[in-house]
Nucleic acid binder design. Structure first.
Length: 579
DNA sequence: TACTGGTGCGCG
DNA sequence: AAAGCGCGCACCAGTA
């Protein structure tokens, strides 16, 4: 592999008993090819990475990263064919799809997802797929062919700059996701256990509900006048409530909280405790926290809008009440950084609404809206803005939206246009080129049926409702999707900045677990608009500065030089508890 | 026994 | 009991 350099693309593929690598020049022409045995390819990748830092091209980043990270090898840049395929296949900015839109094996879920689906215990082991099964292609020839189609589609696009940025950011995100899993989130299992015991009561040895849960259940049943009442079955609980005169339509806490009856207080408390127990109780702790780390499975691009999803562990629902058990290792700190009002800022940038940008600059965006006089209070500004981005039509939120429309016409026109296109059955596209899915066949059929003269009122109403539903989806898609792009750019840039910080040398400050590359500041959590960095204490300030600089870099990368910033709420602490 | 749909909670 | 987007997950009930 002598001809590799920083401008190279190196495509990797599996062969029967090893790995084949092909060096492509910057224009995609293959220069050389070599095969390596299973025991040798990782060292070869490490050698080339150290020397040249090329762009690695592979079918599925998590599958390749896992063994590399296990060996302490970290890749700077990659092109994830599977993720890029999904973007380019659907993007309205791709004019000549070069065959990407034909159904193919590249539409298959990632190898990790396939393994999880198959119930395989080792998530990152290679999945043996026989040729008849539609699995993700793994051979180098398949990879090169797909890469070539993608390059052609990119080159043909009038917006190839944006799409290239999106594909690069998405791929970098895949690297981050793999590294986040390898690193894990530092988790104090003892502290978690203490909280559970304090709130739920002593954990019963022989199973069954903990003491406090049992006591509350008994109180609720007494108030219901039924010692055998089932509290966990919604229909049974509803009937029991009706029997004692609590005439609610559902058992949700919003509705219950408005009732006055002695059963309400213990019932709400009971629901709270049961929720904690089932979502993040001892079973969860035993399953998801090992060696002081919570290792969730992130799924980059798992949400239609481009946000990440998670699969297992509920990584994207880290409950506020447990944030305090996210604790840095001894001698280390957590840098907790989240973007203030990411989505409205993104909307201001996309729409070039200078009024909204002015309101956002250098302060709390919602206070800025108040000072324009559009609304009276910060709370109103917030629900009005959320209503505008989500498509609220009724209630306080819906009533306030027209005021924003008057004050920020360009921003509001952008989301209103997106909604109209969605209602009409069209597709909308994010700033960098991710396109919403087209309407389903059923949706289209319902709309066309409603236009027929024989259509019933019921059919017409349903068509209108579905159209409005879809309008709210496309309205939000452009904002949520572009916010996800900003966050990916932030993450990718931050990852590189952190990687440039020096590793710690003192062995007593080294992490308790994880690959050796984790001896420097590294990402430990990503949550839509927030990151947690785990860092040696001496580098905490530098890591925090890196988070700020990365946010500025992401803003410029996406939107150029605009008079708008994306300020971070940032704190350095031993735990991730919110103040 | 395995699935699907509904309900409810909590995260952004 | 959401109003108003996007998720994951647990639990129950009904069905195959």
């Amino acid at each position: 592999m002598d001809r590799a350099d920083a401008a190279s693309w190196i495509v990797l593929g599996r062969t029967g008993d090893g790995v084949t690598a092909a060096v492509l020049d910057a224009t995609g022409v293959e220069l050389e090819r070599a095969s390596f045995e299973e025991s040798a390819w990782i060292d070869e990748v490490a050698r080339i990475e150290t020397g040249h830092a090329p762009r690695w091209v592979w079918n599925d980043a998590p599958a390749w990263c896992a063994p590399l990270l296990d060996a302490g090898v970290r890749i700077a840049r990659c092109h994830d064919l599977r993720l890029a395929h999904a973007i380019l296949r659907d993007s309205a900015l791709v004019v000549d799809d070069a065959g990407l839109r034909a159904a193919s094996a590249w539409d298959a879920p990632s190898l990790a997802e396939q393994a999880a689906g198959a119930g395989a215990p080792a998530l990152f082991e290679w999945v043996e797929t026989d040729d008849s099964a539609a699995g993700l292609p793994t051979t180098i020839d398949d990879a090169i062919a797909e890469f070539s189609r993608q390059r052609a589609a990119l080159a043909a696009s009038a917006e190839s700059g944006r799409l290239r940025l999106l594909v690069a950011a998405e791929s970098a995100g895949a690297l981050v996701a793999a590294e986040l899993r390898a690193a894990g989130l530092p988790w104090d299992a003892q502290a978690h256990d203490r909280i559970l015991t304090e709130i739920l009561g002593e954990r019963p040895v022989g199973g069954g509900p903990p003491a406090r849960v049992e006591q509350l259940a008994a109180r609720v049943r007494a108030e219901l006048g039924d010692p055998a009442a089932s509290l966990d079955s919604q229909p049974k609980l509803l009937r029991a409530l009706h029997r004692v005169g609590v005439l609610v339509e559902s058992t949700s806490k919003w509705e219950l909280a408005e009732q006055r009856h002695p059963v309400i207080e213990p019932l709400l408390r009971y629901k709270q405790l049961v929720r904690l127990q089932s979502a993040n109780g001892w079973t969860w702790l035993a399953e998801w926290v090992r060696d002081g780390r919570f290792r969730p499975v992130y799924v980059p691009g798992g949400v239609v809008t481009g946000r990440w999803a998670s699969s297992g562990g509920g990584a994207l629902q880290l409950p506020r009440s447990l944030r305090d058990v996210v604790r840095a290792d001894p001698g280390w700190r957590l840098v907790v950084a989240d973007v203030a009002q990411l989505e409205p800022r993104v909307l201001a940038a996309m729409s070039r609404d200078t009024g909204l940008a002015d309101a956002a600059r250098g302060r709390d965006l919602y206070e800025g809206i108040v000072s324009t006089g559009a609304v009276g209070t910060r709370a109103e500004a917030k629900i009005a803005m959320l209503g505008a981005m989500y498509g609220a039509t009724t209630g306080d939120s819906g009533r306030l939206v027209p005021r924003l429309r008057k004050t920020f016409p360009r921003a509001m026109a952008l989301v209103d246009d997106a909604a109209r296109i969605g209602e009409d059955g069209g597709v909308v596209t994010t700033w960098l080129g991710r396109t919403s899915p087209p309407p389903s066949a059923e949706w289209t059929a319902v709309q066309s049926r409603a236009t027929e003269s024989s259509a019933s009122v019921v059919e017409e109403n349903r068509a209108r409702r579905w159209a409005r539903d879809r309008g709210r989806f496309t309205r939000n898609f452009v904002v949520q999707g572009t916010a996800a792009e900003w966050a990916l750019a932030w993450l990718a840039d931050l990852r590189m900045r952190l990687n440039a910080l020096p590793p710690v040398e003192a062995p007593d400050a080294a992490p308790r677990s994880g690959p050796v590359f984790l001896a420097r500041p590294h990402l430990a959590l990503f949550l839509h608009d927030e990151v947690i960095i785990h860092t040696p204490a001496v580098h905490a300030e530098a890591a925090a500065a890196a988070a700020r600089e990365a946010a500025d870099a992401a803003t410029r990368l996406l939107f150029g030089e605009i008079p708008l910033d994306f300020p971070l709420d940032l704190r350095i602490a031993a735990s991730a508890a919110k103040s």
